[in-house]
Amino acid sequence: MDNYSDIELVELSVDGDTEAFEYLIKRHYMAVYKVSYKWCGVKEDAEDITQEVLIKLAQKLKTFGRKSSFKTWLYRIIINTAKDYHRKHATKRVYETAFAAERSTDNPGSQEDEHIDAARLYKALEKLPEKQKTAVLLVFSEGLTHNEAARVLRCTEATVSWRIFQAKKRLKKSLEHEI
């Protein structure tokens, strides 16, 4: 199964191959979990979101258009699930575990600063409109191009660029404001 590409696995799954499907979700579990965690900042919520994503994957396999890339498609499911989850549970996000653990270790000054900066950045990210936050996470954290992000979010590339631009402006402002 190792040699199969994601798309091949999807095709096998669509034909009813349970093993292929299981392999596919095992392969992507961590990736989905990581994106979910970055989105929500709570381990348990990220686990729940990941589970929902995997279930949705089972439900939506048939709608996977072979022209689009699997990655794009998966990101779209994750983002939508995370948004729904947030709406449903209205959880307050805390990235405590992520940063607390880091800070306790004796890091050299500059690196420690980075962590504090990162923590503040994630907090600032929280205050952004959801669309801008999503764009920022996809582009900067996941490393998607504006074009790819546009396909995930089903909007034009220009819209993504605009959201990123707006987001950066706001982030700068709120970070400066804090200092």
Binding site: Y29, K43, A46, E47, A98, F99, D117, A118, L121, G143
Partner: peptide
């Protein structure tokens, strides 16, 4: 990019 990826994700 760097800052966003500094985040340490707990193992599920």
């Amino acid at each position: 990019k760097r800052l966003l990826n500094t985040i340490q994700i707990p193992e599920p």
